[in-house]
């Protein structure tokens, strides 16, 4: 299977005054299209930083990073934003839904950047909500939904543009076990039945077991890999 994500000698350093902190230290990694990868490691190991780099939210200090053959670190901001909209779906630990919008409007948000007419945007948003089992709650605002339901809305928002890659930052970290399991079921379904490539940061070994591949990161270096 060809590599969707290709990293070579990736370095990310943060600077504060004269002090320099190397968060990723020469990371090399390939992730194939259709893989479900769990990324584990202690706090400060560089998991979220890696996720940010892969999602084009931040730029590496040095090294090679290509996704789908595209060196995203070299793209101008505007092009990178467009690339994110087209190819990446983000799922956050705290859901990060807009509280003033209904579930349907939240899911529709990424489609506002497309040229789709309003009716088609609505249709796709409802289809995404249907896929996560929440079509009946589409008019509800986030504060009217449980944590698990909010995360499902977050997933629907992430998949509504049919992206190649889903980046999940501790998607079950704020959920009870039952809701967490349901979210993991959903991610597995998206991976197996819809072919989404998923990279999931998690602290939870049970969640990591759902992935097809587990990576352990410590101090910015890849420590171990379980397939």
């Amino acid at each position: 299977m060809k590599a969707l994500i290709h990293l070579r000698d990736l370095v990310k350093e943060y600077h504060r005054g004269e002090e320099s902190l190397r968060v990723l230290d020469g990371l090399s990694l390939d992730i194939a299209e259709g893989e479900f990868v769990a990324l584990m490691g202690p706090s400060g190991s560089g998991k979220s930083t890696l996720l940010n780099l892969l999602g084009g939210l931040d730029r590496a200090t040095s090294g090679e990073l290509t996704i789908g053959g595209l060196a995203i670190g070299e793209l101008p901001d505007a092009v990178l934003a467009r690339w994110r909209a087209d190819h990446v779906g983000f799922i956050f630990q705290m859901y990060n839904l807009l509280p003033v919008l209904s579930a349907e409007r939240n899911v529709e948000l990424p489609l506002l950047l497309t040229d789709l007419p309003a009716a088609e945007r609505r249709r796709r948003a409802r289809a995404a909500l249907d896929l996560v089992g929440l079509e009946h709650r589409m008019t509800h605002r986030p504060n009217e939904l449980s944590g698990g339901q909010q995360q499902r809305v977050g997933i629907a928002r992430a998949i509504v543009t049919d992206p190649t890659l889903l980046l999940c930052d501790e998607p079950t970290g704020d959920l009870d076990r039952k809701s967490g399991d349901e979210i993991l079921d959903l991610l597995q379904e998206l991976n197996r039945e819809h072919g989404k490539t998923i990279l999931m940061v998690t602290h939870d070994p049970r969640a990591a077991e759902r992935a097809t591949r587990q990576l352990h990161l410590d101090k910015g270096v890849l420590q171990a890999e379980v397939r």
């Binding site: 939210l57 901001d77 934003a81 467009r82 909209a85 983000f90 948000l109 950047l113």
Partner: peptide, 14 residues
């Protein structure tokens, strides 16, 4: 935070 989310979703600076 919401502006950060919108940018994450692909909303450009402009």
């Amino acid at each position: 935070s919401e502006i950060g989310v919108l940018k994450t979703l692909g909303f450009g600076n402009t």
